[in-house]
């Protein structure tokens, strides 16, 4: 079983936003990956961006560049 690590999690309003954000991050070289939204953040469903904890500034810049407003942006053990 994989050990949980602290990650910076971005939750989105829609699946389309999550997928568009992944494209933006890939093109800007922002590290991270799409994962299922952790239960700790929401009991709902959907995709979330998981980034290294130190990348908050780059993540926020990417959100601005993509014109996407996040639903949540916070650290979480995943």
């Amino acid at each position: 079983m994989r050990e949980k690590t602290l990650r910076l999690i971005v939750a989105f309003a829609s699946t389309h936003d999550a997928m568009a954000f992944e494209e933006t991050c890939l093109s800007r070289g922002v590290p991270g990956r799409l994962i299922p939204l952790p239960r700790e953040i929401s009991a709902g469903c959907g995709l979330a961006w998981s980034a290294p904890p130190g990348e908050e500034a780059a993540v926020r810049e990417a959100l601005d560049a993509a014109g996407i407003r996040e639903q949540a942006l916070r650290p979480c053990l995943v």
Partner: peptide, 24 residues
């Protein structure tokens, strides 16, 4: 039903049976 999929296809408000679920 996978909630991510309902959202992607714009079907979230149309669920007629069962519950919305997640990947976990």
């Amino acid at each position: 039903t996978c909630g991510t999929c309902l959202d992607y296809y714009g079907l979230k408000e149309k669920l007629q049976v069962g519950i919305i679920s997640n990947m976990y």
